[in-house]
């Protein structure tokens, strides 16, 4: 993308900080919800080939639980909260305080609870982003799927699809304690959103 041809490192740093602030609020929200400490790794920001994005969560055929929200407003984009099936089970146990159903199937109640977790994370992520940039941003109603990562993540790449074969991904890993991952939070702003975000944050855009 031309926008990133100058001051690439600086712009990536800005996006990393944006991700950091958003995810920090989301981690606090998750921590309150589960009533236990939730930490997060420093977000990574990268242009990544479509082919490799699912590699972040185990590969295209890895079965993941994914909550998907579309970001609407001045800087539209896509948000995914992705968990392995074990991580989803752990979250449900923590949240609902009963043993989640064994096996691969989820009840309506469990899917609804997981959607709500995704909704709360995305809501706190976006509201801190909106505060930071002054741009109005709001998530759509969450949608949930349990399926192959490759099949799911395509939805976050369609806007980039018309421009090339790479997407800009802001990836945050949530950690329980210091090591055990709770899930991935992917923010993939639409290509045209970057210029608006940079302008709103006072980053020079040629």
């Amino acid at each position: 993308m031309n926008l990133f041809s100058h001051d690439t490192e600086f712009k990536m740093d800005v996006l990393r900080e944006v991700g950091n602030i958003g995810a920090g609020h989301a981690a606090t929200a998750l921590s309150r919800l589960l009533d236990k400490p939730v930490d997060m790794a420093v977000p990574t920001v990268s242009f990544i080939p479509f082919e490799e994005i699912s590699g972040r969560v185990g590969g295209p055929e890895e079965v993941v639980v994914a909550v998907f929200l579309r970001v609407e407003g001045e800087a539209p984009g896509n948000i995914f909260f992705l968990m392995s099936r074990e991580q989803a089970r752990g979250l449900l146990q923590g949240l609902l305080a009963f043993d989640a159903t064994e096996g691969d199937a989820y009840t309506e109640m469990e899917l609804s609870a997981l959607s709500e977790i995704g909704n709360i994370l995305a809501g706190s992520y976006l509201s801190s982003l909106a505060d930071l940039t002054g741009l109005p941003l709001s998530p759509t109603v969450p949608s949930i799927a349990v399926d192959m990562a490759g099949a799911i993540l395509t939805y976050g790449l369609l806007q980039f699809g018309t421009m090339g074969d790479d997407a800009l991904l802001i990836d945050t890993t949530f950690l329980e304690g210091k090591h055990e991952a709770e899930g991935h939070f992917f923010f993939i702003p639409d290509p045209e959103s970057f210029e608006r975000m940079f302008r709103a944050l006072g980053v020079p855009v040629e």
């Binding site: 590969g59 295209p60 192959m148 490759g150 099949a151 395509t154 369609l158």
Partner: peptide, 10 residues
Amino acid sequence: SLRTTGLGSC
């Protein structure tokens, strides 16, 4: 054989 993985909307 030809193989492609993780078709969703594709």
